[in-house]
């Protein structure tokens, strides 16, 4: 369900076409095609092991594709010159422990023709008091901020961030989001991976959902949201689970060991109305928003009870 986006006419900064990447017997990326256009902010969303980081590694020149073609600014990303206008961060929080903050920024800045002056960059990121500190002495939030600052020091046209806010508190996360919005407003292109729909919503205009190495959805945030916003309606009942499979908007039905039945539905309100209208004997009714994980499972067909017949067998 690839949706044409308004930016389709803009130059492609990074692209993957029919890219395959295997590790041993496992296929991490399985025929992915993706274009990142200039000025876009693309969120790459997916559960653990979906192939997001592998795809990022291919685009950043860390890995070589087994099949298909990866291009970065029209070149092979393994060619260092292709990476001149790219900024990225490591996935894990890893800073050179003994180098000072300013030395670390200077070192990375030396790789670019026209870097942002270190003092200016540190001040933008609220790290100006930290310049003389050793990186290992920074807090987790400061280290994350430093890593994102490093991604931006070379004035890149494309920034690729792999889970930039994992493990941050809300305040530190909001600071980083604000800085990344500033970068976007200046015309920068962003590719960001996350487990969190909220983060993608805050930063990205376009969402690419990956699962099991494939792109399973690609569209605007609203389009993706309509697919992944599911509701769980659960209750106790004596009726068999199959009684609920035919209700409108039902995506799946789960039975639990404690006798509860959960309907995963695309429209929680409609489901509750239907339960009442059809006078089905249910009690202890609870309505929850399905987690993103559950929504992904529904999207990817991995939901435990997609069809009633399978569930009952």
């Amino acid at each position: 369900m690839t949706t044409p986006t308004p930016s389709d006419h803009l130059p492609v900064l990074a692209s993957a076409s029919h890219v395959v990447k295997r590790f041993g017997g496992a296929t991490a990326v399985d025929g992915v095609s993706l274009n990142i256009h200039s000025g876009e902010a693309v969120g790459l969303l997916g559960p653990n092991g979906a192939g997001k980081s592998t795809l990022i590694g291919l685009l950043c020149g860390l890995r070589r594709a087994d099949a298909g073609e990866v291009r970065l600014f029209g070149r092979n990303p393994l060619d260092p010159s292709a990476r001149l206008r790219l900024g990225s961060t490591p996935q894990a929080t890893s800073v050179p422990q003994t180098l000072r903050v300013s030395e670390t920024v200077d070192f990375v800045a030396a790789h670019y023709p026209d870097p942002i002056p270190t003092a200016e960059l540190l001040s933008d990121f609220g790290l100006d008091g930290m310049a003389a500190k050793q990186c290992g002495g920074l807090s987790g939030g400061q280290q994350r901020r430093l890593l994102v600052a490093l991604a931006l020091v070379g004035r890149p046209e494309l920034v690729i961030l792999d889970e930039p806010t994992t493990g941050l508190d809300v305040e530190a996360r909001d600071t980083l989001w604000r800085l990344l919005r500033t970068y976007r407003n200046a015309g920068g292109t962003l590719l960001i991976t996350s487990h969190y729909l909220e983060e993608i919503q805050a930063l990205a205009g376009r969402v690419v959902v990956m699962d099991k190495g494939s792109v399973i959805a690609d569209g605007t945030v609203d389009e993706i949201r309509s697919h992944v916003t599911l509701t769980k309606v659960s209750f106790r009942t004596e009726l068999p689970a199959s009684s609920f499979g035919s209700l409108p908007h039902t995506v799946g039905v789960e039975t639990h060991d404690d006798g509860r039945v959960t309907i995963v539905t695309a429209d929680g309100d409609a489901t509750v109305r239907a339960l009442v209208l059809e006078d089905l004997a249910v009690r202890s009714l609870e309505v929850h928003a399905a987690s993103l994980e559950e929504a992904f499972k529904a999207l990817t067909g991995e939901h435990p009870v997609r069809t009633i017949g399978q569930e009952q067998s």
Binding site: R85, E103, P113, P156, Y183
Partner: peptide
């Protein structure tokens, strides 16, 4: 925070890179 002025700015030389890496 700004974006690169142009796509044709020259990359730092190998000597610059060696110096930066050695210093680090």
């Amino acid at each position: 925070m700004t974006i690169s002025a142009g796509p044709h700015s020259a990359a730092p030389s190998q000597a610059t890179l060696i110096r930066a890496h050695t210093k680090a």
